[in-house]
Design a protein around this nucleic acid. Structure first.
Lengths: 142, 142
DNA sequence: CGTATTTATCATATAGACATGAGAAACACA
DNA sequence: TGTGTTTCTCATGTCTATATGATAAATACG
């Protein structure tokens, strides 16, 4: 469901969350842990910096670290940077934007809208913290 | 959320359902209605034939038609041919197959599994008929 | 049988996702 | 200031999704 890139980003973010609040973590280390191409991950992490999720430090003892504690970073912040359509709350119709709209809804509009809403809410309400430590901090949702 | 191809397929299937049980409908007509590339749609419809959703007839008065009434064709049959991962009931973890498993689940396994289940169920329980005619034949689900 | 009609198939083109590699820029530290 | 470390950036390559165009095969009908 996630693109490869978004999945890499999420796994890297989880790794950063696990190690938070230790000092910067090198791309090399994360890439080795996750078995993800080093240079590719480097670009992805840089995107997360631009997205305001983590910060980077260059030079010796450099690397990446989260800018906020994991319980204050929502998955939408990570995933939305790479799969914007997936987490957007705009209710795209199943049959595409032109085929129907909220004004002139297709027959499955409401049913599909409900499913979409579940997906969107998951990414908006789930924090990195939950992926790392688990727990039932949020309403069950299923 | 659907790939372009799966969306074309679904829209074409809905069009066929609207016209069911009239005789074969030409690709040209469907493509014009849906504003979808003709030859591309031709290939997609051919895939639907292989998937057992519709049948094709060549030559004059030829075209495509559903092999069953729309209330007996589930969306999974149409979409699954093009986006198999989306409709698969295999519970892929959010973080990827290697990162966690049902045996050694990540902390969000259950939460994400529930969301995935909603999506899967939608495609398995919704029929083409519902997209065309609407109605509340199935349990609300949201 | 011949011809027009329509799908089936093949070859090719284009764009974006995914990935690799090299070198530039920033930084710590002696 | 010099050197090694690490991120940043650019150029390039590969693969798949998306699409286009031409030709082959099947069919209806006069």
């Amino acid at each position: 469901m996630l693109s490869q890139t978004a999945e890499y980003a999420l796994r890297a973010a989880v790794r950063l969350a696990e190690l938070h609040p230790e000092g910067p973590i090198r791309v090399d280390d994360i890439a080795a842990d996750l078995r993800v191409p080093r240079n590719y991950l480097s670009k992805i992490l840089h995107s997360l910096v631009k997205a305001g999720v983590c910060a980077s430090t260059r030079g010796p003892h450099g690397g990446f670290q989260l800018v906020r504690p994991p319980d204050q970073i929502r998955l939408v912040e990570v995933v939305g940077e790479f799969d914007p359509a997936l987490v957007s709350s705009e209710r795209a119709c199943l049959l595409g934007r032109e085929a129907c709209s909220d004004e002139d809804p297709c027959a499955a509009h409401e049913r599909w809208g409900g499913v979409r809403q579940r997906v969107t809410s998951f990414f908006e309400e789930t924090t990195l913290d939950l992926l790392v430590r688990g727990g039932a901090a949020l309403p069950a949702g299923n």
